[in-house]
Write a protein that binds this DNA or RNA. Structure first.
Lengths: 195, 195, 195, 195
DNA sequence: CATGAATGAGAGTTCATTCAT
DNA sequence: GATGAATGAACTCTCATTCAT
């Protein structure tokens, strides 16, 4: 497959992402993709043979993009608390933009394609985020910004709360106020330990 | 529709629940239901006109059943801490039984049928659970079992963690050990305040 | 079948007629009839076994009713010209009441059930009407009201024009003005012979 | 849709016409068309999405064909009376060929799709024919072939008689003799005015 | 007689997938 | 590589008709 083909593949993935964003995963048909891309039915099959394969590739593309963003952001900030705050702010932003994300499609995809044993992208991302947060909290404790006897536990707790809010946003709805309240509760737990 | 029909309707709902449990929501066709019930195509349409309607009814049935269970369980126990522990134990049990629950179907259904304004079953259940937990914590604080300056915040935090674990169970997998770890973290936050 | 049954049969036919009037012939299902009658599905089959049978009976009932009406009307009038005018006025009334007649159903029925050899209700009615008109014209000629050398031909011409207007009313539409114009043309041909 | 597709579309319309000719309009299903065309179910839907759309197209095709025929025929004849006679002869031919025409389907279609306000194909054809006949009669009067004080009225009368015979042919049956008789009556009215 | 639940055939429609060009 | 026509399986839904009660 020449360079030209790689560009076309990329083009298809961008268009496919739009479709998954607006229709989720299960609702998407090869026909939808073909129409969004304005290519021929047969043409699509030269590059991808199912919506599943398309979604996997879209996901790879996305996770690559996200990693890049995160790295960039972190490199521009200061203290641990600042970085954690920034991280949470990013999460909040994601949580609140409705109708504009791949999240539902991701859920639908993993419902069908959940693989406990093999590499699970979501789990890896989750664990990675836990590590980052744990490290931030530990550093924060060291330099006196945070008070916490179990940084790992706290990090996991934060991540599960975020996951909880993420799914809630799509099933029962969530407002900015609600997100703020939860994030504040978390931060208070780190800076103002209960006595 | 006489009494006999009501029984049949009930029968269909039981069978339909099985189907939703094993196939989720979106994958289910009227044909699936018909085959599980071993009735004729037209026969099913006498009672329900879409998988959507079937699912709504299954959900009503389930939430009724759950309310009953909860009430019964609570009436048999003692202190606030005990009740909270029992509640969490129940949640844990739910979390860990895989391939045996409606949860995925519920998610899929609410992705499609999310209604921000009107009565949202999931939100109502969530809020109800928050209230119960808040009350339990408050009572626990009063009788010295717990230490907590913000019972409502704590209750919400617990519920979001549970939601986070619930969705995680279906997308990245979760083990008993992981659940225990989280619940322990929560309980520790209530009984052993950080110093 | 007792008297009670005959009444019920009559009841069903009245209701069935409503359905045929509003939906034509081919669109009507046994279900439609059942719903209009508010009886059970099986109940209808005790009396009629198809929409075809129902329609045939409705038609018999109707043609009986029409004969009665015609007789009554004629007995109350005077000269031949008057009677012919009355007859045409009746036809005009029928022509112009849209959405309120069996005519479309009749057409649809005879399209499917046209029988050249056997007794054909429509042909009989047509021929009968031709005879009546012929007689009226002849009488009119005798008493100097009309001028016509071929009363039978004229009668047939009139009937075909009426048939033409009747079908036109349902396929291309017809207005009162248009009907008046045609009837006037016909009457002028009888009273003011071209020189 | 390339040239090839247009040919196929044409092919389907020809076959569909056969079906409409033999089964009328309402009785025809997409399956009937598919079988007549010997193509796949899905294949038909590539070109037409309903029997309604098919029929509309068949009708367009037919009316195009008819216009062509008429023009050709007229250009080859002489006097007004000759042309009128030719026209009536054509009508007679149409009237008498049973089981070989679209007429019943046309009626059924317009029963359902009668549009009083908008362009109504049948009305347009009717009016056009009236104009032609009127002109022929007028010309005939001018050159002494016909005697008629109201050419327009006569033209309309003729067309309604033709319509009447057309519908009668399908509901009560009509023979060549009957048609001849009516046409003769009409012609006599034009050439031998009553005294 | 009367009911209405139940059946199953059949119509409509959509798409994943193939394949000749 | 690319096209898009063609296929056929699968699903939804509706009714005529039957039959146990």
């Amino acid at each position: 497959m020449g360079e030209k083909s790689i560009q076309k593949k990329q083009y298809i993935l961008e268009k496919a992402k739009n479709v998954f964003v607006s229709k989720g995963y299960k609702n998407v048909t090869m026909k939808d993709i073909v129409e969004e891309c304005e290519i021929s039915r047969g043409g699509l099959y030269l590059y991808f043979e199912s919506t599943r394969e398309l979604f996997v590739e879209v996901l790879k593309m996305e996770s690559q993009d996200n990693d890049d963003e995160l790295t960039v952001a972190i490199s521009e900030t200061d203290t641990s608390a600042d970085i954690l705050a920034l991280f949470l702010k990013e999460q909040k932003k994601e949580l609140l933009k409705r109708k504009n994300q791949l999240q539902v499609a991701v859920y639908e995809f993993f419902f069908e394609n959940y693989e406990p044993k093999k590499d699970n992208l979501l789990r890896n991302q989750f664990n990675q985020a836990v590590s980052v947060i744990e490290k931030l909290i530990s550093e924060g404790v060291e330099n006196g910004e945070f008070v916490c006897t179990d940084p790992l536990g706290a990090a996991r707790n934060i991540m599960y709360v975020l996951e909880g809010m993420k799914i809630s946003a799509h099933t029962m709805g969530i407002t900015e106020e609600m997100v703020n309240r939860e994030l504040l509760y978390i931060m208070k737990g780190l800076v103002e330990p209960e006595e």
